[in-house]
Design a protein around this nucleic acid. Sequence first.
DNA 1: GCCGTTATTGATCAACTGGCCAATAACGTG
DNA 2: CACGTTATTGGCCAGTTGATCAATAACGGC
Lengths: 215, 215
Amino acid sequence: MSNTKPRRAPRKAPAERSAELAQATRSIALEQGLSAITLRNVARRAGVAPGLVAHYHPSVEMLVAGTFSSIVAAETEEVAALVAGTGTPQQGLSLLLETLLDDRRLDVTAVWVEAWSLGRRNETLASSVREQMDAWQAVIRDLVAAGVASGDFSAPDAESVAWQILGMVDGLNAQALVRWNGVADRHTHLARAVEAIVGAAPSSLLPAAAPGSDR
Amino acid sequence: MSNTKPRRAPRKAPAERSAELAQATRSIALEQGLSAITLRNVARRAGVAPGLVAHYHPSVEMLVAGTFSSIVAAETEEVAALVAGTGTPQQGLSLLLETLLDDRRLDVTAVWVEAWSLGRRNETLASSVREQMDAWQAVIRDLVAAGVASGDFSAPDAESVAWQILGMVDGLNAQALVRWNGVADRHTHLARAVEAIVGAAPSSLLPAAAPGSDR
DNA sequence: GCCGTTATTGATCAACTGGCCAATAACGTG
DNA sequence: CACGTTATTGGCCAGTTGATCAATAACGGC
């Protein structure tokens, strides 16, 4: 009753308020897209006045770029950590492909695709996009290089092959964004394609056999 | 001197004016993106008053969707015709991959990527996107099916494989949009990957040998 | 407890958007 | 030649956007 109209947001430490705004902005980007990041939208979700958002982020362009980086960097680190816990390079690469094709990451894919477009008019964002693409490529490249070192892969150029794999994954995900239920066996086909370009043995990148079949 | 201020655009036949507006809109989309399609932008480029654009296109949403379809359908037909003129399925598929990775088509790729994002808020556009993706997939699917029929390919599911190839190509192109000079040997890697998923002989999809080497 | 610092507000501004419409003028049919 | 049709205009409206700023109020050091 009494707080149906909270006239003024409680004063908070800048670090705390800044974190709140960042979280509000991230959730908007994931739910409605990067282009839904406006001073008023962010302010409404955070429960503050529009001017306060501008106070913390004098430029919306930078807020968009920072939010993009925050979202995708978190995913990169998460997947990299996941893959780092596996044994052989084949298992690592297989798990990486399986994870990236997971439908639950479609919201992040949407952010990627929108960033590619918006980067055309927002140079700050474009720079962030290139940075984050480099980070992704490095994860894959290291994995491929490890496989080459162990003799499991035979790709002569891990750098180039990593870009190629990244591009394929992005394309398949973007496609799933529009035609979510179109393709069957995405993972199987992708695994075969990746085996070919990294020079891995056929079927060596297919998902681990069904649980219980080898025990 | 006399025509520095043409007060009024000459009255033209509706079909002619409509074609002019369509051309103006297409050029804007290719140069500045689909989101630059506004009543005033189109009017300025066509040399008419903003109201006239609204007169011919009561809904901007539909104008955007129509322009998207016009641009990408032209490309699909062009490439389909090009491929239809080749001999074997291998040659056709190889030429298709080579053509689609051509840097000169980046402006069309940008339109594709933006359409994927804008389709989220423009249902008319989203519908057009699905339609044009289907058209692309059909071209590839027929090519793969022809190869299976001739015994050159062994893909069990041309439908699914075609979607996969389309996704890969789109992803690599979108990547080139941002990192235009990043990857070397894009075509070679892609050809290997496609050979694997269509079940073609190794190197059978590489570009035709250097002129003179086999003659 | 006083006071400077600053977090927070809400209004305002210019610039843009799509859509609408009365007025104008050029065309083709009669 | 007259007249109805309609291509074309330009202004208007309500909505959105990012940015700015004076006013307010809460915090923390003294």
